[in-house]
Design a protein around this nucleic acid. Structure first.
Lengths: 134, 134
DNA sequence: TTTGATGCAAACTTTTTGCAGCTAC
DNA sequence: GTAGCTGCAAAAAGTTTGCATCAAA
């Protein structure tokens, strides 16, 4: 658990270890879920620290972040994959993409899909120079 | 402009017409941008109304919504397409998907991509019965 | 020892809500 | 006339920030 932190030049603190544990134990938690996990395990943790740690981990490439209806969720998997979210219960599942085929079809899956959003993030042509020294 | 509202059983109000205008004039605006557009055109509009109208339009299928770094953005296009967002300036562009090929490659585009998130939304198996009468 | 992390609490941003009044149909 | 929409303002929900304290290396 600590190896991953150490390998990315991040200090090993009890809080960070617990956040990593939460990310492994939970499915796509948001900050609130990570905090609840830590508190259940009697680990000292504050809201600000949860956000700090998650952002550090994201910047280090250890987790990916996604925005889902006003909440920022995190996922410890770093290989490329997609997600599906239930608009009734809010549950988020991983979804494997099949190269060369349609991304998803309702009849290929027990899920009923009625919306999708794919967002890439990066630097637009105009900002590529600017961002390097900004 | 009003046709679309009428066709979906939505009452035609000045506010709704202006929101539709804003969605056509702007690229992927959020609520704040729509409000600013309306106010520039001297149209009466309150924050709550912007959110109400956008949600009505989304529920009617006239626009799609996407969550981008804590903000909910809207897009009047309803055919399936993707988006790319600059992490420096926040600009969001449409991105056409090429069936049968990789979704995107950095060297195929002047954008530098370092993150992607694809989220489908729908009903998970457990909720399909429940949601119909809930 | 020193650099960086944590905790608290307050501020900030974005979205939602309750309710009175108004208007499209 | 009436169901449904709007505006206001306050509250809610989620995230960020400033600063003093603390601890990993």
């Amino acid at each position: 658990m600590e190896d991953a932190l150490h390998a990315h030049g991040l200090r090993i603190t009890p809080q960070r270890v617990v956040v990593l544990e939460a990310l492994r134990a939970l499915s796509h938690p948001d900050a609130e879920a990570v905090l609840a996990y830590a508190q259940n395990r009697q680990a000292a943790m504050s809201v600000a620290t949860v956000y700090n740690v998650l952002e550090k981990l994201r910047a280090a490439g250890l987790v990916i972040a996604m925005d889902v209806r006003g909440r920022r969720c995190f996922d410890i998997r770093t290989d490329s994959h997609d997600h599906v979210r239930c608009r009734h219960c809010g549950r988020v599942d991983d979804m494997v993409r099949h190269p060369g085929t349609r991304l998803i079809a309702p009849d290929q899956s027990p899920w009923v899909i009625d919306d999708q959003s794919l967002i890439w993030e990066g630097l637009c042509p105009a900002c590529q120079g600017e961002a390097q020294h900004g």
